[in-house]
Design a protein around this nucleic acid. Sequence first.
DNA 1: TAGATTGTTAATCGATTAACAATC
DNA 2: TAGATTGTTAATCGATTAACAATC
Lengths: 209, 209
Amino acid sequence: MPKNARGISETVIRRMPVYHRYLKELIEDGVERVSSKELSGLTGFSASQIRQDLNNFGGFGQQGYGYNTKALKDQIDKILGIDKSYKSIVIGAGRLGQAIARYNGFRDSGFNVISLFDIKDDIDDISGIKVRKMEDLEKYIRDEGVDVAIITVPREVCEDVAKRAIDAGVRGIWNFAPYDLKGPEGIVVENIRLNDSLLTLSYFMKEIS
Amino acid sequence: MPKNARGISETVIRRMPVYHRYLKELIEDGVERVSSKELSGLTGFSASQIRQDLNNFGGFGQQGYGYNTKALKDQIDKILGIDKSYKSIVIGAGRLGQAIARYNGFRDSGFNVISLFDIKDDIDDISGIKVRKMEDLEKYIRDEGVDVAIITVPREVCEDVAKRAIDAGVRGIWNFAPYDLKGPEGIVVENIRLNDSLLTLSYFMKEIS
DNA sequence: TAGATTGTTAATCGATTAACAATC
DNA sequence: TAGATTGTTAATCGATTAACAATC
C-alpha cells in the first residue's frame, strides 16, 4: 500500500509522469516486466534513483523479477490522481486555447475541457465545445463546479482572469500566459514558461556554436 | 567580464530566464536598481542563491548599491544569447503550430519563424508566413540556413520529422510533441512536456482535496 | 538451486543557505 | 562617515549514487 504521499519532494513528483509515460509505451509494446536498469536506459535516470523514487510510495517491485509494467502504471495512475477527473475550462479561445481544447491527450489524463471563454462572443464552437462570453465566467464555474482553469489569454489580463476564476471556485490553474501566477494557499498553480524554455534553448545553442 | 560559462549547472541556467523576466518588468516600471533581497521577493529564490547564481558569470553588482537593472539585464541577454538571432521554422501547421508562429514574444527572444511546414499543402499563410509542403523541408533548411525547428506534429511522426530536420542542418529542436526527443551530440533539444506538467497538476490537485 | 533484482541503508556529491569581510 | 549590500568562503542540507542483504 502506498505510503503517505506528503513530504515527498517536488523533484521526485516531477519524475513520476516520466515513468508513467515510458510504462505506457512498454505496455503498448506488450512488455510485461521491466527492471529499474531497463527503465534507467529509457528515462536517463539512474536505476538506483528509480528504485528510490518508487519506494517513496511503496514497494511495487519484486526481487529477482523487477516491476510488472501494468501493475506499476496502475500504481502511478493512483499516485498522480489520473483515476480522478477534473472539469476544466479554457479561458482565451485564441489559437493556443483552441489547440488545447481539441487535444485528446489531456482528456486521457483526466482533464475534460467542457467550455471555452473569450472576450469575443462570435467564435464558433471548437470541436463541439461551446465558446462562451467572459461575463458568464463566474456563473458558469459555480453552476458546473469547474475544477481547473486553463489560461491562454495575453499577459496583461492573465492575473485578473485567474483571480476571477479562483474567486468563483476553481482549485487549479494551468497558466500559459508569460507571467508567473502565484495562487493563494490551497490553490494549485502550474505555470508553463514557454519563453523561459526558449531562452534556455538559446543559451545552449550559443554553447554549441 | 563574464567568466567562462562552461561547467555551470543546468539548474542555474534555468533560473537565468527568470531573472531576465523580472528585470524586464523592473525596467519597464522605471526601476533603476535592485538588490538581491528585492529580487528574492520577486522570484522566490533566496538572496544568497541569486548572488551565487549571478557570480557564476561575473560580478555584476556593487556593494552597498545592488544591481543596476539595465546593466544586469544586458549581461543576462548576453549570457542567454538573446543578442543572437535564430532562423526558425515550425513543422506542423495545426493550431498549436499556428499559435507559435504568430506569437511575437518568441521573435523578441531572437527566434524568427520564417516558414511553416505541413503535410497538407492547402493551408493559408499564417500572418504572412508561408506554409510549405513537407517534401520541400530539407531543401528549404539547407537553402535558408535554418537554425531551429519547432516541432508541433503528432507524436507518431515527431521522431522522423526531427531526424529529417537535423540531417538537413538544424542545430536546435524545440519539441511540443508528447515524446522525449533525444538529439545526437552537438544538437540542442528542448522538450516541452505539457502532458507531464498536467499530471503534476493532477498530483497536487489530489493533494489539496 | 543459482541468478537476478529489489528495497534500503550508508556514502558521496552537489546545491542551497549562512555568515561576514570587503567596499561602495 | 554610517549603512547597505555585494562577492565569496564555510556550513548545512537535500538529492543522488553505491553497496549489499534479502528474497523471488
